[in-house]
């Protein structure tokens, strides 16, 4: 199989807006999967609801597009009932961290052998730009017209605390690193969580002073702080600005996992 063979071509064109970062993340994921030499008949993509969750519809394998927030609970059933299947989940910040928050922490705790790719665009894109649990403090959305007053979740910290075996964060700018992280996630037994920060020009960018798509990509790049550099800065007593986020491999460990292929 080549990388292109993974796409369900009769479903194209896709629904994503011009400038959306989701396509980049789907590309990185499929490029990583292609390197795994997986059989498409033994691979299942699962998702919930939202822009990110439309991705499985564009992939040729068996795919389950479920209810809002519940993808990980459906995935738990698929993987435990047939551990031979490779199970990959596409989700977003609203799907995973708001309505699906409980399923997220419990899937991490069970450390079930699945790989979760979260497209974090910090907004509810499909419904027209409402604030999400990862909308940064002060940012504008249709439901935070005076700037978000709430603190956002750090999804990676959540996954680490809840017990995931592999956790990494990159952005839609860091395509090579993201592809590599997804591959490590696919290879790691247990729950792998890869958060991909991505731009949403239609609903986040235009309300938050990003006039061009690349302005927001640039902002993701300049606010991303490599874990090693962050550690160094802390060591040297340097101040890390609040609006920076950490990128890189954040944990890789070997806690006992459920649903591993034998």
């Amino acid at each position: 199989m080549t990388y292109e063979d993974w796409f369900r071509k009769d479903r194209l064109p896709h629904i994503y807006c011009a400038g959306c970062g989701n396509g980049t993340i789907i590309n990185c994921t499929l490029a990583a999967i292609d390197q795994m030499n997986w059989n498409k008949d033994e691979t299942v993509f699962i998702s919930g609801i939202g822009c990110s969750s439309r991705a499985p519809g564009y992939i040729v394998t068996d795919s389950l597009h479920t209810t809002h927030g519940r993808a990980l609970a459906f995935a738990t059933g698929v993987k435990l009932a047939n551990p031979k299947l490779n199970v990959v989940i596409f989700t977003g910040d609203g799907d995973l961290a708001a309505i699906g928050g409980n399923h997220f922490i419990h899937a991490c705790r069970r450390n079930i052998d699945i790989t979760v790719i979260c497209m974090n665009n910090q907004i509810y894109g499909m419904t027209g730009g409402q604030g999400s649990p990862t909308t940064p403090k002060g940012c504008f959305s249709t439901t935070t017209p005076y700037g978000s007053a709430e603190s956002p979740f750090d999804l990676c910290e959540l996954a680490i605390a809840a017990g995931a075996n592999y956790v990494a964060r990159w952005t839609s700018y860091h395509v090579k690193e993201l592809e590599k992280a997804v591959k490590v996630g696919l290879e790691t037994p247990g729950f792998s969580f890869i958060e991909a920060m991505t731009q949403c020009p239609t609903n986040f960018g235009r309300r938050n002073k990003f006039k061009e798509v690349l302005d927001q990509v640039e902002a993701l790049k300049t606010h991303a702080l490599l874990k090693a550099k962050r550690d160094r800065m802390i060591e040297q007593g340097e101040n890390i600005p609040d609006d920076f986020f950490i990128i890189g491999e954040l944990i890789r460990r070997n806690r006992p996992a459920m649903g591993v292929k034998t």
Binding site: T66, R70, A73, G77, V78, L80, A81, N82
Partner: peptide, 26 residues
Amino acid sequence: GVFVQMEDEIASMAAIIGASWTGARA
């Protein structure tokens, strides 16, 4: 067979649907 205690009934229902799609009686 597989028994799993889920985090709530929403997840329980989701899990049996997922299992059913692998062919299992759930």
